[in-house]
Every structure is written in C-alpha cells, then in structure tokens.
C-alpha cells in the first residue's frame, strides 16, 4: 500500500456537510429530575390512598396497609427463615433464567442460521408455545420433584420461548446489504458472523434478556405455588392461607425488588454493549 504523499485531495469538509444536530445536553439533567420527582409523587399518592382506604372503605384483612406491610417487611428480613426463602427463590430464578436464555438463544440461532431447520421446526415450536405453560407445572413436579428443579424447569420453559423468538427473528432480519458489503471485501464466513451477525443480534438479545426477567419470576412463583416447602412464592401462599395480608404484600414487594435488581443488572450490561446506539 502506497501511503506516502496522499495529500492530493482536498480535505476540507464542505459547508453543506455538517453533523446532524447534537441535541442540547443542558436540558437533559433537569428534565430527568422533573421525571424523577413526578414519579416519587405518583408513588406517594398511591401509597397514601392505599393507607387511607384501608380500614375505612376496604377491610384491612383484605388489603392490609403500607405501614403494616413495611413493618412486616422489616420484621421478616430479621428472620433467617425468610432469608432461606429468598435464597431458594433466587437460586431457582438464576438457574431457570440462565438455562432458558442460553437454550432459547442457541435454538433461535440454529433455526435462524439453517433455513431448512427453521421452516421445519418453527411451526412445531409455535405449537409447543401454544400450551399454557401453567398447565405444565404438575408435569414438572412429577418429573423433577418438590425441590428447586421443578421451578427451574418452569422458569426456563417460559424464558426459553421469549429468548427463542427474539433471536430467531433477529437472525431473520440481519441486514443483508451489510453482510454483502463485508463479503465483497473478502471476509470469511467466520468474520461475517463475528463482526456483522453477532452485533446485529445484540438488540434482540437484550430485548429477550429484559423481557425474560419478569417471565422467569412468573415461572418460579407458579412452580412454588403448585408445590414447595421453601421460597418467596411458598411464603406468600402460606401468608394468604393465614389471612396475613401484610405478609402477602411484603412477599410481593420482595418479588418486585428481585425483578428490579435483575433488570438493573441487564440494563447496566446493555449500556456497555450497545454504546453505539445511545444518544
């Protein structure tokens, strides 16, 4: 490659040739503050209404109230029994989510990459997905027993489909002009996979990872409702049977917090990987 003396071409950026508007950054910070404040106020209003209505309009044993729930939560988190429940549910979540995500991504990748396999198996997978997954809970109980594995199976089953569809559709919509142009440059198949197909799957993969978090929680809790002797879902069911509304809601708060933690982790990961997309 001749690199010497390449100054023959005008290097000025022509006047019509400007960068698209970089939107003003100054307003972004204060706008975020307004959004946050409004969110806090909205949540406060809802909690306030709940507190007001409880015992006056709706019986406390049905809906408890925020103050009681908060107190119950604080008490529960002092007990090792509750931490055991939490630890069990976390294990089921993490293992179920991981299996579902990996399985769904691999099958989605394979069926997306091999057109023939895709046309054979996609309708079959659609059919299996048509099964209401809750109906499988007794089956998993029978196959995997009372321990964490029936819940892991339930959660991974749900997550699998979420991930599968995202990756499969992602494979179908890899922009062909991009793979073509890199191919003409002389790229190997491996290079195209690594530098074009993988990155273009990042968006659908993160969509699947995010949607998968609450779905994993649904799977685990369904499993625990059907039969369990540990777990947050098991605790919530127990509380309900004892008309302990505060305990029931405290359990739900714990579930929500778990899901939010999961989403936060995925979001942090996404911000790193999808840097090119950010504004």
């Amino acid at each position: 490659m001749k690199l010497a003396g390449q100054h023959e071409v005008s290097t000025a950026v022509a006047s019509g040739d400007v960068v698209p508007d970089a939107r003003g950054r100054a307003g972004a910070g204060s706008r975020r503050l307004v959004v946050l404040t409004t969110q806090v106020v909205a949540v406060a209003v809802i909690l306030g209404l709940w507190q007001l209505l409880s015992g006056r309009v709706i019986a406390t044993f049905l809906i408890s109230n925020p103050a009681d729930v908060f107190k119950k939560l604080a008490d529960l988190l002092q007990t090792s029994a509750m931490w055991q429940n939490i630890s069990t549910t976390v294990q089921e979540l993490v293992v179920g989510y991981a299996l579902g995500v990996v399985g769904g991504a691999l099958v989605g990748w394979a069926l997306g990459a091999v057109r023939f396999a895709g046309s054979v198996f996609e309708p079959i997978i659609n059919g299996v997905n048509g099964i209401p997954k809750i109906a499988l809970a007794p089956v998993f109980l029978l196959w995997f027993g009372l321990g964490i594995w029936s819940k892991v199976a339930q959660a991974s089953m749900v997550v699998f489909f979420v991930m599968f569809y995202n990756v499969y559709m992602g494979m179908r919509s890899v922009p062909k002009p991009l793979t073509d142009v890199v191919h003409v440059m002389g790229a190997s198949r491996r290079y195209v996979v690594r530098k074009v197909i993988f990155p273009s799957l990042a968006v659908p993969i993160f969509a699947g990872l995010k949607a998968g978090v609450p779905f994993a929680m649904i799977g685990v809790i369904v499993g625990e409702f059907v039969a369990a002797d540990k777990g947050v879902g098991y605790y919530v069911l127990e509380a309900t049977q004892q008309y302990d509304a505060a305990g029931l809601f405290a359990g739900i708060v714990i579930m929500v917090v778990m899901v939010l933690i999961g989403l936060t982790i995925v979001n942090a990961f996404q911000r790193r990987v999808l840097r090119w997309q950010r504004d």
Binding site: V182, A187, W276, Q277
Partner: peptide
C-alpha cells in the same frame, strides 16, 4: 453501494479498519 452500509455499531475508525482486519 447506494446506501453507505457502514456497520452502525462501529466507529468511523473501526469501519475503515474492517477490510484491513479481514486482510
């Protein structure tokens, strides 16, 4: 090509380095 077909996830530098990486 008619559309520039740059890799959207790669910077200008990374895009221009693609054919060199391939080679």
């Amino acid at each position: 090509t008619q559309d520039s077909n740059l890799l959207p996830w790669a910077t200008v530098m990374e895009n221009v380095m693609v054919p060199l990486e391939i080679r």
